[in-house]
Structures are given as structure tokens and as C-alpha cells.
Amino acid sequence: MQNIFLAGSSRGVGREIAKLLLENEPPLVRLVALLRNPTYAVELEALGAKVMLGDALDNLTLEAAMSNCGEIDVVITTMGGLPSDRGERADCEGNKNLIDLAVKRGVKKFILVSSIGSGNSVVAIAPQVLQALGAILKEKEKAEQHLVNSGLTYTIIRPGGLKSEAATGNAVLTEDPTISGIIHRADVARLVCDCLNSDRANNKVFSAIDRHMLFKPVKFEIFDL
């Protein structure tokens, strides 16, 4: 049974990942969910997760949270959002702190959910989107590079535009950084879970889109896990 540490589980893709990981009875994994806001603890505990309170932008509370949950096989992070009072973003600094502690603890695999528009996929997004989100995408790119350079076995998944609707089952991964489109959060979660035990996903950077919701109808190669 894998021990998984999930950061960013209060809502969105992270919450969908928690639901999928714990959907079996009994669960097939042990899930520890890092929360900064205790408001969401009851819902996650009801799913079967162990909740640890901590802030990824505060190394002391983050290290305490990770130290109190035993062995960790895999870290998954979907963290992002508004900057702290000091101007730090979880997209970059929070994820970098998490990566450094994963190295320290000998974590076997690290899965980072980033965004299309980060790194070499910047070519996939429209100029007006880049103008609006460029600063955030640069922060995400820094976290990606930190992970690649960390020595950890990693998978980086860059979703397209996100929608909170039921999974379509049509989501795919591709190594083509020029592809962009829409994807539902529940489908991103399924792709993350599919990568957990796939050696083919190791040390790969993917774009994640729904094959039927591309911004432009182009041919591309789907990655087979």
C-alpha cells in the first residue's frame, strides 16, 4: 500500500485526486492531505484521508507535517493561488519547499500539476492569455525546473483551461508542448492517478487536454501510459 502526501487538496484538482485515491473500500493507498485552512479537514477526513495542518510557504510547519506522517512514497502537489503577505506564491516557493523536503525524506516519486503555458508550452497559449497570466506561469516554470534539477523521479502534468464538470473520459497526455485546449478537473485527477504507478511517466513533462476540446483541431501524438 502506497503512502501518498497530497498538497493542494482543499478544492479543485487536488480534491478530485483525493476522491479518486480513496474511492475503493478499503482504500488502496494511505493518503495524507496537507491543509493550510482547517475548514476543509472534515470533508477530507470523511473521504478517508489523514489531514496534517501546515503551510508550504512556512518550512517549519511543512517539515513538521511531513515528519508526523511516517514514510512517504509519493508526493503530489496541485498548489497555486494568491501570493502571501510577503509576495511569495505557493506555485513557486511552496512547491520548491515541498520538493526540497521530498529529497530530504527520500520520496520515490513526485508529481507536480502545473499549467499549459509554463516552460516550453508557452507557445501554446494566446498572447492575451500570456499577458494576463505570464507572471504566474513564470512562477510555475521555476517550480518545474527545481523539480527537474532535484534528482527526484518526477512527472509534471500541465493541464489546459480547467472546468469543474463531470469527467468526460476523453482526457489525454501528450509530450507535444504546442497543444492547448480545455480539460475538466476530474479528468486531470484521473491522469494524475494513472501516472502514479506508470514507469513510462517517470521523468516526463506532459500537456493534459481533452481530445474533443482542443482550441485548434490539429493532429498530435497521444502518450500511452
Score class of each variant (00 low, 15 high):
Ala171Trp: 02
Leu98Pro: 07
Glu221Ala: 14
Asn203Glu: 11
Pro38Asp: 05
Ile72Pro: 03
Pro27Met: 10
Glu45Gly: 11
Val13Asn: 03
Glu23Cys: 10
Leu130Gln: 15
Met52Tyr: 00
Ala167Pro: 01
Lys104Leu: 10
Glu71Gln: 13
Arg200Tyr: 13
Phe215Cys: 09
Ser150Cys: 01
Ile116Leu: 11
Asp91Gly: 04
Ala56Phe: 05
Ala7Thr: 00
Pro38Phe: 06
Phe215Met: 15
Thr77Gly: 09
Ala166Tyr: 14
Ala208Asn: 02
Phe5Lys: 01
Gly119Met: 03
Arg200Trp: 11
Ser118Pro: 10
Asp85Arg: 13
Arg11Cys: 06
Ala41Gly: 08
Leu62Tyr: 00
Leu57Gly: 00
Lys19Asp: 09
Gly117Ala: 10
Glu175Thr: 15
Leu101His: 00
Ser180Phe: 15
Asn37Leu: 02
Ala49Ser: 04
Ser207Met: 08
Thr155Gln: 04
Leu31Ala: 09
Ser114Lys: 09
Ile209Lys: 03
Gly134Arg: 15
Ala143Asn: 06
Ala189Val: 10
Val75Ser: 01
Leu34Glu: 00
Lys108Pro: 04
Ala49Phe: 03
Lys204Glu: 12
Met1Pro: 06
Asn3Thr: 00
Ala126Pro: 07
Val42Met: 13
Ala126Gln: 15
Pro38Trp: 03
Gly151Trp: 12
Leu62His: 03
Leu6Lys: 02
Thr178Glu: 03
Val122Tyr: 03
Phe220His: 14
Val205Lys: 12
Glu221Phe: 04
Arg190Glu: 14
Val107Leu: 02
Arg30Gly: 05
Ala143Ile: 03
Phe215Gly: 12
Glu23Tyr: 11
Pro217Arg: 01
Gln131Met: 13
Cys195Ser: 15
Val192Phe: 05
Asn59Ala: 08
Thr61Gln: 03
Phe220Val: 05
Ile156Leu: 10
Asn202Thr: 09
Pro177His: 13
Asp224Ala: 12
Phe215Tyr: 14
Asp176Gly: 08
Leu47His: 00
Glu71Val: 10
Glu63Ile: 01
Ser164His: 10
Lys96Gly: 06
Gly169Arg: 10
Met79Ser: 03
Asp100Met: 04
Ile4Val: 07
Ala186Asn: 09
Ile183Val: 15
Leu44Asp: 07
Tyr154Ile: 07
Pro159Val: 08
Lys140Trp: 00
Lys140Ile: 10
Ala56Val: 11
Val218Thr: 13
Ile209Leu: 11
Asp58Ala: 06
Gln145Ser: 14
Asn149Ala: 13
Ile76His: 05
Ser9Cys: 11
Val122Asn: 15
Asp73Ala: 05
Gly48Trp: 03
His146Ala: 13
